[in-house]
Design a protein around this nucleic acid. Sequence first.
DNA 1: TCAACTTACGAAGGAGCGCTTCATTAGTAG
DNA 2: CTACTAATGAAGCGCTCCTTCGTAAGTTGA
Lengths: 384, 384
Amino acid sequence: MADLRGGDLSRLRQLNSLTAIRALRRAGPLTLSALAERTGLSRPSMKEVAGELMDLGWVEEVPPSPGSMGRPARRYRFRADSGYLVGVDVGGHNIRAALSDLDGEILAETRQPVLPDAPLEERLAAIERAVSGCLSLGRVAVSDLWTIAVGTIGIIDIEGRVIYSAAVPSWRDLDLAGRLREMFPCQVLIENDSRLAAMAETRRGVAQGAKDVVFLHVGRRMGAGLIIGGRVHRGFGAAAGEISMLPEARWFDAPEHLNSCAAVPGGTPPEDAAGYTLAAARNGDPVALEAVGRFLDDLAVGAAAMVLVLDPQVVVLGGGFSRSADVLLGPLRERLERRCMRMPEVRASTLGDECVVAGAIDYAVDHLDEQLFTPESGPLPLTR
Amino acid sequence: MADLRGGDLSRLRQLNSLTAIRALRRAGPLTLSALAERTGLSRPSMKEVAGELMDLGWVEEVPPSPGSMGRPARRYRFRADSGYLVGVDVGGHNIRAALSDLDGEILAETRQPVLPDAPLEERLAAIERAVSGCLSLGRVAVSDLWTIAVGTIGIIDIEGRVIYSAAVPSWRDLDLAGRLREMFPCQVLIENDSRLAAMAETRRGVAQGAKDVVFLHVGRRMGAGLIIGGRVHRGFGAAAGEISMLPEARWFDAPEHLNSCAAVPGGTPPEDAAGYTLAAARNGDPVALEAVGRFLDDLAVGAAAMVLVLDPQVVVLGGGFSRSADVLLGPLRERLERRCMRMPEVRASTLGDECVVAGAIDYAVDHLDEQLFTPESGPLPLTR
DNA sequence: TCAACTTACGAAGGAGCGCTTCATTAGTAG
DNA sequence: CTACTAATGAAGCGCTCCTTCGTAAGTTGA
C-alpha cells in the first residue's frame, strides 16, 4: 500500500524545492545562505533551486535588508499572493466567508444573513454572494482563486455531498461541492464545521502545537471535532465526533437545561434563552447556576467519554456558549477531573465567530501543502 | 516541526534502497527485472542498489527459478533471518512469548504460567524464561535478537515505565523496559496489550487493511485498543481507550452479569463462572441468555460511544469471551445498530490467545521499518 | 543435435544534481 | 581611503540514474 516508487534525480530536486518552499513559508523572507543552512543544502545548490522556483513563480526577490555587515544578501520570499483561498462557514442564520492568501493570512471577511428555513437556491445564492463579496473586498480576480473550503453542519462524504444534516433540512443529499464548482472554477473542499473549528484552534487558537485535540462545539446544538495526529479525523464514513447521538452521553438534550430555566423571563425568544441563563449565572442567580450545573453535568459525560477514548492533549470549549466560558470552564474542569484517567488541558476558544472560516482556510492550506508534496505534480507549474 | 532537511544524492540512494527492501519484503524473492519494474527504477540502477544491499547483508541471492523462457534471472530475497524479534504477552496468569524473523513470521512460541499475585521478581524471572525459551526453541542466539516488544495491562509511558496497572499491583511504577534491557541486550518496546491486539487484528486478523479500528477486549477485564490511520493510537498520556473508567459507559461492571448469573452452579471457581454462563447461553438456557443480554446491553453502550466518537471501519470483538463470539456477535450488532450513526463492520477476533504476542511482533516490525526510514541511520549497516 | 527465440546480464557513455573551492563584488567600520 | 565582512558567480568533481548496445544462458521446435 505504501509508495513503492523509486526516485529519480528530478525527484530529489522536487523534494529540495519543496523543503525550500516550506522553509520560506515558515520563516518569511530568507537570504540564500539562511535558506541553505536551514535546509542543509549547499549554497550553490540552493541558488539553483531558488532560481527554478522564481522561474515558476513560487518565489520572488525582495530588497535586501540594509544595515548589516558584508555584502548585502538577496532575500527571497514565498509568493503567498500568487493564489488565494476562501473559507466559508455555512451556518443556520449566517453565511460567513473569508479570503486569505496562500499562507492563510486573512485579508477580507464578509457575512450574509440567511433565514434557517431559506430554500436551497436562496442559500446557495447567499454563499455565492459571500464568496464574491470577499473577492471584491480583497480585489482578487476569480481566476486567482485556487480553493474554496466550506464548513457546514452535518455529515459530508468524501466527494463533498451532504449525507445528513439535522439543522438544515434542504441541505440533505445536496452535491454541495458540485454546485460550488459550477459557481467558481476552482477546487472545492467540504468538511464538517466542528472539525474545521478544531483545526483552527490547533493552528491559530488555544490548542496550537497539540497533536490530539478534542473540540467541543457547545451551543444550541452540540457537536465535536477531533484532531488526531495533527490532522482532521473524519472517520471511515465521515461520522466521527457524533457522540451526541448516544443517549447515555447525555449531550442531545443538554442545552435544554439552559433553555427551559425558570430564571428566563417569559416572552424571551427561544434562541436567546440559553444566553440569558448563562448571563444570569454569571451574576450569581442561584436558579440559573443550578441550570448551568445540570447542563455541565450532562456535557461532562460526553466530553469525558471522548477524553477517555482518545486521551487528547487539549480539550477546547467552543461554540456559541463559549462566550460564557468564565461561567463554564471551571465547573467543567471539576467534573472532568472526577471522571478522567488523565486530565487534559481544558481551554476556552478565543477565535469566536471566525473559528470555522479560519479553520476552513487552514484546511485549504494543508490541502495545498499536500498537493505540493505529490510526486506527480511536482513543484506545480503555476500555470498563468 | 516537519523535516526541513534537504536531500543529498546519497539520500536518494537510501530512499531507493529502502523501496527495494520494502518491495522484497512484500513480494518475496524477486528478479532484478521485476524489482526494477515495481520500483520504477532502471535495471542497471537497481542492480547497483541490490549489490549494495547484498554487501550490507540485507539481501541475498536465491537459486533462479527453473522452467522459464530465456536466460534464468537471478532472484533476490530479503534476509528476514538476519535478525529476530520477540513478542511478549504479560498477562495475569500466563506469560506468552513468540519468536519471529524480521518479516514477522512466527517461528516459536512459549508459555510460562504465573500466579496473579506472584511477586515482582518472580514475574520478571518468568518473562526471562519465556523469552529465553523462545530463543532456544528457534535456535537463535541472544546476539541476533534485535527487539523485544512487550504487551501488558495498564498504562505505560513512552519510556516503558508502568504508570498504572489495576490487575497486577506489583507492576506499578516499574521501569519494565529498563529491567528487560538489563536481561537482554536489545531494543525494548512496551505497549498496552489491548492496543497490540488491535494491531495484530489489523495486520493479520479480521481487520486487515482497515485504517481505523476499534478492538474490544472483552473478558473478565474490559479494555479497548485503537488503531487510527493504520497506527496504534496511544494518546497524549498513553491512556487512550480507557472508556471502562466512565460509569455511564457501563463497562466496568459489565462482566458481573455473567459471573453472578443464577445459571452458574454453586462451587464453580469465579474465573470459570462467565465461561459457564456463555456456554449455557449457547445451549439455550433462558436464564443465561438473559444474563448475556444484560452484559451486551452494557457492552454496547461503551462500544457505541467509541464508534460514535471515531467512526471506525471495523470493530473487532476480542479477549477471552470472544471464544463465545457465536453467542455475542449477533446481539451486539443489533444493539450497536440502534445506537450508531453509521454502523461499522463488527467481527470476531480469530487470532485467539496469540493475539497480543502477534501484535507485539507486528509492532516491533513496524518500529523497525520506521528506523529503516530515518535519514540518519540509512540502510542500517547490519553490524556483525 | 542444432538453429531460432527469449530473456537476462554486463559494460559504456551521457545527463542531472549537489558539493567544494576560489576569485570577485558590494557593503560597513574605523 | 583602507581593512574587514559576507555574499556572489563560475569552474571542476563525484555520485546516481538513464539509455543503449553487444553478449550470455536458457527453452522451443525441426
